Simulated scan of single mutants.
Amino acid sequence: MAQRLVSVWQPFFLGSASRDAAVEAARELEELGYSRIWFSAGFGDDVPARFREILDGTGRIGVAPGIVSIWHSSPPEVAAFARDAERAHPGRFLLGLGASHAVLVEKDGTDYRRPYSKMVSYLDGLDQAGFPRERRILAALGPRMLELSRDRSAGAHPYFIPAEHTAEARAALGADRLLAPEVAVVLDPDPVTARATARKYTAGYLTLPNYTNNLRRFGWADEDFAAGGSDRLVDAIIPWGTAEQVAAGLEKHYRAGADEVAIQVLNGGDARSFPADAFRALATVLIGRR
């Protein structure tokens, strides 16, 4: 494992934050030593300008969509945006692509069929547009998509997974591909309130078959998915506790083979607010910045 990067995944950056608020938060994360900022690109037909705004307003930190939906964007347009970002800020924009979920994609009438084949076709389009494989990464859960990530991108950006999945992903990707899982956390040492906060997040994701089917491969069952998740499942997916305890939970992913962990803070952070204090505390433990 060549890298050990600490990144940020927060909906705030594409939520209700103004450009100035988003750039201000990004500058602080850069000063704290975080490597990259991840956030959803939404379901529009292009890459939101916010990614370029953060690049323009900072000097080092990377940005990456987690993810651009392959159902709502075209390879030529996405490649054009990514090439412009690369020319202006070499090595700082990483294009995250994903097939998302049927229930979300079909809200606007889009036909969600054969997502793997759709991804292959989308990657063909990026190749034809001349966009390099080393500047794109795939949201991958199952074995086939992980193999596609290995063969046709820089690596994989799994979401909502336990450390056991990180180990499987590393084995599938090999040693030379980037593995950057998202891991949501709760900075709260009280087990009752910490798990309650975590379940506000897990409850929605446990209704999505892509995630529950993936978890079944690691031995989780229907009883673990009920009521926002069993204590055992919540604890496996959402590290909670003090900053030091959360860091210990994140360490499981690094030991399993992650190069980069994209941390999403759940308490105090959402599309409307940025949990600056939490990222300061985590930086002290994970990066050594005070």
Rank of each mutant, 00 (worst) to 15 (best):
A2F: 09
H165Q: 14
R136E: 06
F13D: 06
R50N: 10
R150V: 12
F218Q: 03
G91E: 09
L179P: 01
F279H: 14
A22T: 06
L95Q: 02
T207I: 01
L178T: 13
E77T: 06
A194E: 04
G15H: 10
D231M: 12
A184H: 14
A283V: 10
G155Y: 09
H89I: 13
A171P: 00
D190R: 11
A80R: 11
D222P: 01
S230L: 13
L55Q: 01
F225N: 02
L178V: 14
G109D: 05
T58P: 00
F13K: 06
R232A: 15
E31C: 09
D259Y: 08
R27N: 13
G44C: 12
A236D: 12
A256L: 09
R87K: 14
L141P: 00
G268R: 07
M145Y: 03
M1W: 03
D176A: 15
P191D: 07
Y122K: 08
G15C: 10
L282K: 11
A22D: 07
A221R: 15
R113H: 13
V68H: 02
T202I: 08
Y116T: 05
P90K: 04
S230C: 08
M1R: 05
I70P: 04
A2P: 06
A49L: 13
G268I: 12
A175E: 14
Y254L: 10
L146K: 01
A156M: 07
L55R: 04
F131A: 08
A80N: 01
Q128H: 02
K118L: 14
A82W: 00
R217T: 15
P143Q: 08
R199D: 04
H157M: 15
R50E: 07
P90A: 12
A196C: 00
G219W: 05
G66I: 11
P162C: 09
L95P: 01
P143R: 10
R60T: 15
G204T: 10
G268C: 12
